[in-house]
Simulated scan of single mutants.
Amino acid sequence: MRRLLTASAAIALLVLAGCGDSGSDGGSPAPGGQPALKKATLTLNWVPYGEHAPFYYGLKKGFYSDEGIDLEIKAGSGSGKTIQQVAQNNTTFGWADTPPLLSGVGTGMKVKSLGVFLQKGPAAIEFLSDKSISKPQDLKGKTVGGTPGDAMYATFPAWLQANGMTASDVKVVDVDAAGKIPALSEGRVDAIMGFFHDQGPTIEAKTKKKVNYLLFADSGLNMLGTGIVVNESTLSGDKDLAARFVRATQKSWAEAAKDVAGAADAMVELAEQEPAKDVLVKQLELAIPLLELDKGAPGVNTDQKWKETIDLMVKYAKLKDAGEPSKYWDGSHAASNSK
């Protein structure tokens, strides 16, 4: 089992090293007369993998402490559960996929996005390259492993429909998250649902075989991916904390994109992550293009992108009373240029 990261010790070292703690919310003075850092937690969408390296990079470089935040990063067990943790105020912020966020708001959860960073969703069907699969229709009659409760499992029927198929065209085999990769590598399923930039490099490292994939975003279901989720009570009660967290996260991602190896090193040091550094590097390298940095700073979205995702959820996922993007997203904290 991977150890959850408690960042307090790391932050303390950064402060002692002179990384600074400006932007404090005015808490009780710390020893030496400096304002105390504001404690906050971030629950990831899954156990740490390469996509999460920028958060650890931000911790190591002092980007969060510079904004007055003492950040603790917690592993997650699926975007849906992370959103629930945010809705129940069990964590300050969440890192979660957008489709389950929309669904959660639709059921009455008082949460909002502060900005989606992976503007092209990473959801995919993954398979070994020796399978005769090159397009969605090639999955007919095949077995696909998926984990009930995760984002891909929920949207897979919509992806089939978008490609002219029905649920009866494939056999879905329910497996737990830890069992998906063994099921694929051992030939018990023909393909699995997953985030290509996470599982692809992991499977290749374990099997020494090439992995191919069909990206949902390239085949009829281009929806926003993962981003920051917050409880509405935090937005109303501590808007400054939300703004500071977004600034630190934007800077963390922007700088990590320029120093992928350094971000992987920070993750190895602070998260004690199981995959080797080369796997983490590959995972982050595959994630960075999904930011679409040529169109703007990390985490800066447009109404049009949100409307496209909402429309797809209405069409394929039966999202009711959809409303406008402002129902799900508060983009006022995501500056057009990261700090």
Rank of each mutant, 00 (worst) to 15 (best):
P136L: 10
E308Q: 14
A53Y: 04
V229G: 02
L241R: 04
R3K: 14
P289F: 00
M152K: 10
L42R: 01
D311N: 15
T147I: 09
D150S: 11
G23A: 08
G104R: 04
K318Q: 14
T302M: 13
R3D: 14
Y328M: 07
T6G: 09
A248V: 01
S332A: 07
D198I: 14
D174Y: 05
L102E: 09
M313C: 13
C19W: 09
K305T: 13
L214D: 06
A266C: 01
P122H: 02
G200F: 02
K295R: 13
L4S: 12
G121V: 02
M313H: 08
W306P: 00
L42T: 08
M165E: 04
I73A: 09
M267E: 04
I69K: 02
L59R: 04
S28D: 13
V211Y: 00
T43H: 03
T43S: 10
L101N: 10
I125K: 04
A276N: 11
G32R: 09
E272A: 11
G23F: 02
M109W: 15
T226K: 08
R188Y: 07
S103R: 12
V144T: 08
F93Y: 04
K135W: 03
V111T: 11
K180H: 13
N301P: 04
S103K: 15
F195H: 07
I133T: 02
G220P: 03
